[in-house]
Each structure stands twice: as structure tokens, then as C-alpha cells.
Amino acid sequence: MSRIRITPRFVLDYNVGRHHGQVEVVTKDIGATIGTEILSENGGRICSYKPGTRYASTAEEIAEEHLREALEMFVGGSLVHAPGLPVGEAVAVALRHATAGEQKWTPGEEDSW
């Protein structure tokens, strides 16, 4: 018999100039907080962290704020990236900078309290 697993996902679409992209936000209840993972369009992990909330909807709102901050860094030029880097990858780099202040979380690892 197959095991069934359902993972809720929240998608954020963005536009930078003529480039359209999206990131997926996956939240998981990991005890006293919600673990948040932001994935690229290809499903690769960009970053994962604990936003310090017990509510998935609040974690999704925080992820949206991080994406907005990342896009402002990218468009505003405050983040220097390699020339020729695809926009999606440059946004991923900016997202890692935007979430740098969050408590890190590695999905799949046991969290001890």
C-alpha cells in the first residue's frame, strides 16, 4: 500500500521588468513554531528558516515581505550580483540576503526544544 502525503504550498508570483517568476512557500508545523521553506520555480530550495510564528498564514505573509525586500534590493541595485546571472537566480541570491536575519532551519532534521 502506498503512503499518501499532502504538502500545502503557497505560490508568490513576481514581475521584474519584463521577467515574470514565482517562488513557492512551504510551511510545516515543527512544534513550537512554523518552519518555512522558499523554493524556486524548479523546486530547488532557496532558503529555509523559522520565522517565529505559530501560524502558517503569518509565515506566508512574512515570506511575502522577504520577497518584496529581495526584489527591492535587486531592482534598487543595493545587491551586487554577477553580470549575466539570470534574473531568477539573482532574485534567489537577494532572497537569501533578505532572510539572513531569520533563525535557520533545515527541513527533515529533528528539532530539539
Rank of each mutant, 00 (worst) to 15 (best):
S2N: 02
S2I: 02
S2P: 08
R3M: 07
R3P: 01
I4D: 00
R5G: 00
R5A: 01
I6H: 14
T7M: 06
P8W: 00
P8H: 03
R9F: 03
R9K: 06
F10Q: 08
D13Q: 14
D13V: 10
D13M: 09
Y14V: 01
N15D: 10
V16F: 10
V16H: 12
V16P: 07
V16E: 13
R18T: 11
H19M: 03
H20P: 05
Q22Y: 13
Q22K: 15
E24P: 04
T27Q: 14
K28Y: 03
K28L: 05
D29H: 14
I30T: 15
I34G: 13
I34H: 12
I34K: 15
G35I: 00
G35E: 03
G35L: 00
E37M: 04
E37N: 05
I38W: 09
L39D: 04
S40G: 09
S40P: 06
S40Y: 01
E41T: 09
G43E: 03
G43Y: 05
G43I: 06
G43R: 02
G44H: 15
G44S: 15
G44D: 14
R45S: 13
I46R: 01
I46V: 15
S48K: 04
S48F: 06
Y49P: 11
K50I: 06
P51S: 10
P51H: 02
G52F: 05
R54A: 10
R54W: 01
Y55F: 14
Y55N: 15
A56K: 00
S57M: 09
T58D: 10
T58Y: 02
A59W: 09
A59S: 14
E60V: 02
E60Q: 15
E60L: 00
E61V: 02
I62F: 09
A63R: 03
A63W: 08
E65K: 13
E65R: 11
E65I: 11
H66K: 15
L67D: 09
R68M: 09
E69I: 11
E69Q: 15
A70M: 08
A70T: 11
E72W: 08
M73Q: 13
F74M: 09
F74A: 09
F74T: 10
G77Q: 07
L79R: 12
V80Q: 13
A82W: 01
A82Y: 02
P83N: 09
P83V: 03
P86D: 02
P86V: 08
V87W: 06
V87K: 07
G88T: 12
E89R: 08
V91T: 04
V91M: 05
V93P: 04
V93R: 15
A94P: 14
L95H: 03
L95A: 08
L95F: 08
H97R: 14
H97E: 11
A98H: 07
T99H: 13
T99N: 14
T99M: 12
A100D: 09
A100H: 12
G101S: 11
Q103Y: 03
K104N: 10
K104W: 08
K104M: 08
W105E: 02
T106E: 05
E109I: 00
D111G: 02
S112E: 11
W113S: 07
W113C: 03
